[in-house]
Design a protein around this nucleic acid. Sequence first.
DNA 1: AAAATTTTCAACCGCGCTGTC
DNA 2: CGACAGCGCGGTTGAAAATTT
Length: 512
Amino acid sequence: MDDSEVSKRSKGCHGSPAADEVNDGGMVGGMIPLKKGPWTSAEDAILIDYVKKHGEGNWNAVQKHSGLFRCGKSCRLRWANHLRPDLKKGAFTPEEENCIVELHAMMGNKWARMAAELPGRTDNEIKNYWNTRTKRLQRASLPIYPPDVCLRLYKTIQDDQNMGTLQTGDTYDPELMQTDHFKIPEVEFKNLELSRGVPSYSLGLFDTSASSMLKQGIGSSYGNGLVFPTMHPAKRPRESQTIFTGLDGIVGRGLPVFDQLTDYPCGKIIEHSGLSPPYDPDLSTYDQPSWDVLPGSHAILNDNSSSASAPICVAKKLELPSLQYSESQQDSWGTPASPLPSLESVDTLIQSPPTKEMWSDGQSSSSGLLDAVLYESRNLKNSKKCSGHPTSDVSVAFGEIHGSPLNPSETEWDVHADLKSPSGHSTSSLFSECTPVSGSSLDGRAYNVRPEPVDQVLIPYAEARKAPNQTGCNKPDVLLGTAWFTPSNNCHKNQFFQTDDVAADLGTMNSE
DNA sequence: AAAATTTTCAACCGCGCTGTC
DNA sequence: CGACAGCGCGGTTGAAAATTT
């Protein structure tokens, strides 16, 4: 064993005052300090041999039986992270990377559970990967979460709300929202060719603002009715669980679930958004002044395919929304607040990290995108309760943002979605015009968006809606499994949400 | 080529949960 | 029922490696 190597890193083997640290990390027989620092191959061999003979577990016995001067914790960690025979070595594959992003969006920093979905990978590995990735992306002002992930989550929550399974009120369980430095889903859209049969309103979904969403207050009833992957810590399973019914069978088995996501095809995004033409005209009757405007990027509205395909902008931090759409500006947009707080915001959701203050309970949070979406959902619900002038606070409705409903086809979207507009960073504009410098994000995930036919209809979600009370269909995890992930062989043509259902959802949501 | 900076990642730490006595 | 032990999780640290200046 290389003691010099060990001593270099060892900061003393006296462990912490904690009982377990004292017991297994302190001294051996009160005399010999347990080793810390890097493991040597000799130690590895001893540990491997021990596990072969005695199996995993009872780690504190390792030192006693093998003579290894390592605390049980250290042994367990070493085994779990490096010596386990089933460990997959090497860099994450693109599929795995995509999977991690998806999982993080849904779970937040639940590394162990994420690891459970990625066979052969350890929580530590995933954690390191994510932290590295996040740093890199943030530094490059690139989105942490791809747009389709944002939308799927958001849509799922919306649908869930419409099904009445997402409870509101003060049932929010802080523990379920336990997170840290809430990651702000930033979105950047590259090479979006949205002009082909894509409803402009679908794009509007992207021009939303999570920060506004997230500032509105806390209280997603995460714990009631919502059986998200995040579970109460107290009920945390000892062993890795399969969290997503659908995801499990896909991700867990290493199938190319995310093949379709690798490039974040626009079509997928649109599909996930749950909107497809023809847009239900009835929606305009809702107390939703600009719902009809909601949509779209000017590229779409104008069928400006040239602009849509023009690779213009360099990846750039999208930093406007919540501020840009501040209340003070609402008037300038000439429209009243809309009861549709949400869709406004994937953009914000994507760009502005909710401050910790937003979590009224003072909990830090580092949840994934899902938390943000849930948060917004809760707000949405609240806003629905509040008469017809819901978004009096930070949240900005589409109308406020995109102009008058009286002129849906010629909205202000064009104005502020335009790169030349004051806002300049509208996601919609990014959607249609921005292209990352290199054609792919720094983390290798190209945010390409391909136009997709919007006439297909996906069934799982629709079915789930029809039978919300069946077998947990009202549960997001089920939705995640059925509606979010589709077999890769169908990825190019699946419609994740039934158009009519979505329209109905939106209508319901707005009229509630 | 060397120094400085950044990135990666193995390991540690503290906390909380569960099971046992 | 409380104390304790074992274990696992998530956050953090810091040395090594890689990259940039």
